[in-house]
């Protein structure tokens, strides 16, 4: 079971997810220690592996730093559920095989701390705390293929061979 960490905010940007002062490394575990630091300094401490982040519009806007995805993944976050995602963040996540969920109303229907269970194939988020079922459209086929292959580079290797 995953716990939802809900940020009722739009435009959570890459500087908040992983501040540039930590970009002098690309080590995922080092980056993970500072995940969401400028938005919520206590985030990493309260996070359990497999938890999810829930947010509003334009999650991940700003820089092209894939470090933002690595910090989130490295910290143990299973997925990010947002109303919309910034373009480069969305691409980066798919490219490194990290699943994202676009949901118009998850931000309204899931409360901070709720227990959620996600069926990625069927496109259903079950909020076990309040009993709600939230449907979402799974990622498009080409993105699922990349994720299934383990990221863009594995996907390319497979396609070329």
């Amino acid at each position: 079971m995953s716990k939802a960490h809900v940020y009722k905010r739009d435009h959570i940007n890459t500087d908040e997810i992983i501040p540039a002062r930590y970009l002098n490394t690309d080590n995922e575990q080092e980056l993970a220690r500072h995940c969401m630091e400028d938005l919520d300094a206590g985030f990493v401490k309260k996070l359990n592996k497999g938890d999810v982040i829930v947010a509003g519009d334009d999650f991940g806007c700003g820089s092209s730093r894939e470090h933002a995805v690595w910090a989130i993944r490295g910290a143990g976050v299973a997925t990010v559920i947002a109303r919309t995602f910034a373009r480069i963040f969305y691409r980066n996540a798919i490219d490194c095989g990290f699943y994202l969920i676009e949901s118009k109303d998850a931000i309204e229907r899931i409360a901070d701390g709720d227990e959620v269970q996600i069926d990625y194939d069927k496109g259903i988020i079950e909020d076990k705390t309040n009993g709600q079922r939230i449907e979402f459209r799974p990622l498009p086929d080409f993105a699922l293929e990349i994720i299934k292959d383990g990221g863009l580079l594995e996907h390319i290797k497979k396609r070329k061979s």
Binding site: S64, L152, L153
Partner: peptide, 18 residues
């Protein structure tokens, strides 16, 4: 357009991108 490190790796190696 701006891209992240994985797209960059793919571009460097193949000269193509989706």
């Amino acid at each position: 357009t701006g891209i992240g490190s994985t797209d960059l790796a793919a571009s460097i190696a193949t000269g193509e991108l989706w």
